[in-house]
Design a protein around this nucleic acid. Structure first.
Lengths: 90, 90
DNA sequence: TCAATAGTTCAGAACTAGTGAACTATTGAA
DNA sequence: TTCAATAGTTCACTAGTTCTGAACTATTGA
């Protein structure tokens, strides 16, 4: 729970999750990047945190990594939490 | 929003907010302390963060500071958020 | 085989959080 | 009034975290 919250407490990561949820398809890390000038390493780190918190799932597809939000898992563990928080994302 | 989330993302602060909500009355900082062995300065810092995030209101009453969760304000700004998160607090 | 692309890992700088010590403010007793 | 006790705050220091560029790995396509 704390892991999920602190993952989402960062505005950049919240925006990543929001854009992943808005697309129904998987997105590569750079496609979901919240701002274009962010260092690759920083972005990579944000995705790692989201993965470790159980918020996203990443699969390798060729040269890129495709990410999806693990909505079903999260709704099972914490019903309504994700939707409530993402609903308030700037 | 990010401020509210990162304030609640800390397990200690979430426990503080939870105990404040369970009591209907105000509570002093030490009464709401999530664990007895925490340093006073750390506790004070947690309360400051909760205040700055707009989560609690503190009034001085004699030698102690009385704290309440600003439920009405928070529900006005972010309906259901507080209840949802606190509901999952360990 | 080689360049391009997408991410990761690493090391260092910049920032943040937890702590003890010293401080302020209020109370209540001598 | 004075002094000790109590409740929090502030400060300075340490320990840990985050952000970043540089170097790396892996995959693709020419």
């Amino acid at each position: 729970m704390a892991g999920v919250l602190s993952a989402l407490a960062d505005p950049m990561r919240l925006r990543i999750v929001k854009s992943l949820m808005q697309q129904n398809e998987c997105m590569s890390c750079s496609a979901a990047a919240p701002c274009p000038d962010m260092a690759k390493s920083t972005l990579s780190n944000h995705f790692r945190i989201l993965r470790e918190a159980g918020l996203i799932q990443t699969t390798k597809k060729g040269v890129e990594h495709r990410n999806v939000v693990r909505e079903a898992d999260l709704n099972a563990r914490f019903p309504k939490l994700l939707k409530t928080i993402v609903g308030y994302a700037e």
